[in-house]
């Protein structure tokens, strides 16, 4: 293999197509990922609470949703949202991009709901007992005692979910919806330079995911320190215009 030729090709592709990779591909990939994780978190929180409901039937439906989504390939789910749902609901005049975004949200929500549920259940049961023994109601206990502690279990896992979804958006390129992998297909197809373009997009993916995973790791470490709560409280005190502890 002629490496110098390969480097020249990569350089050429970058100068000629950088906007296709970055302005189109990375932009759309980020948009898809952010939408999927944000809405996935909102919807996933709801599912998490349904899964912890005291009514068996509600728990059952939440479980079915989670198991179906987590037990089938995301590519299959994308097919369903891309081919079947638009047929079933012809009145919903969504673009392909939107259908794919919805599919990713639905997928992400299932995973996020499990992240949230396990984050909540990982909070020591004694915390709930102590709060209830003081006379706090179930809801008060959840809001003031359990959730603030669960957040530190949940946030790092959500960061990992963000990285997962970011990579999984590449499957959406099956439908040419303009993500980074679509950019690769366009450029590689036009220039007949598969390997070179693969190296470029691979590097771009890595450049995004690697710092993110480092950030998640740093965050996890910080969360393990008991004093990290202090900063959170200090921020809250500042926001409330309150006085900061003397320390």
């Amino acid at each position: 293999m002629d490496f110098s030729q390969m480097f020249q090709n990569i350089f050429r592709l970058l100068t000629e197509y950088w906007h296709v990779y970055l302005l189109e591909g990375v932009k759309n990939t980020m948009i898809l990922t952010v939408i999927a994780v944000l809405l996935g978190t909102v919807f996933g929180s709801l599912v998490a609470f349904l899964k912890m409901s005291r009514f068996k039937i509600v728990r059952f439906f939440a479980s079915v949703y989670i198991e179906v989504i987590r037990g089938t390939p995301i590519l299959l789910q994308l097919y369903v949202f891309y081919f079947i749902l638009p047929e079933l609901f012809p009145l919903l005049n969504f673009t392909d991009f939107i259908w794919v975004a919805i599919a990713l949200c639905v997928n992400s929500a299932a995973y996020v709901s499990e992240i949230i549920r396990s984050g909540i259940q990982a909070v020591d049961k004694g915390q709930t007992e102590a709060a209830r023994s003081l006379g706090l109601s179930n809801t008060q206990t959840m809001l003031r005692i359990v959730l603030p502690q669960a957040v530190r279990n949940i946030l790092p896992a959500l960061g990992n979910e963000f990285i997962m979804i970011l990579k999984e958006t590449s499957l959406a390129s099956t439908f040419f919806i303009g993500d980074l992998m679509t950019s690769h297909k366009i450029v590689a197809g036009a220039e007949y330079l598969q390997l070179e373009s693969q190296i470029i997009v691979g590097t771009i993916y890595l450049c995004i995911t690697f710092p993110l995973s480092k950030l998640v790791g740093w965050f996890e470490k910080r969360m393990a320190n008991p004093n990290s709560y202090k900063n959170h409280n200090r921020k809250r005190a500042l926001m409330a215009g309150g006085r900061i502890g003397e320390k």
Binding site: E129, A130, A131, L134, G135, L136, R144, P226, N233
Partner: peptide, 30 residues
């Protein structure tokens, strides 16, 4: 339960609140 205080083997203090907030949380909230 507000009238029955309980102390646990594992303490179960609230790690995300300061010492003062641990004490004031329930009386303020209720």
């Amino acid at each position: 339960r507000q009238k029955m205080g309980m102390v646990f083997q594992q303490f179960n203090v609230f790690p995300h609140l300061t010492v003062e907030e641990n004490i004031t949380l329930a009386p303020k909230m209720l």
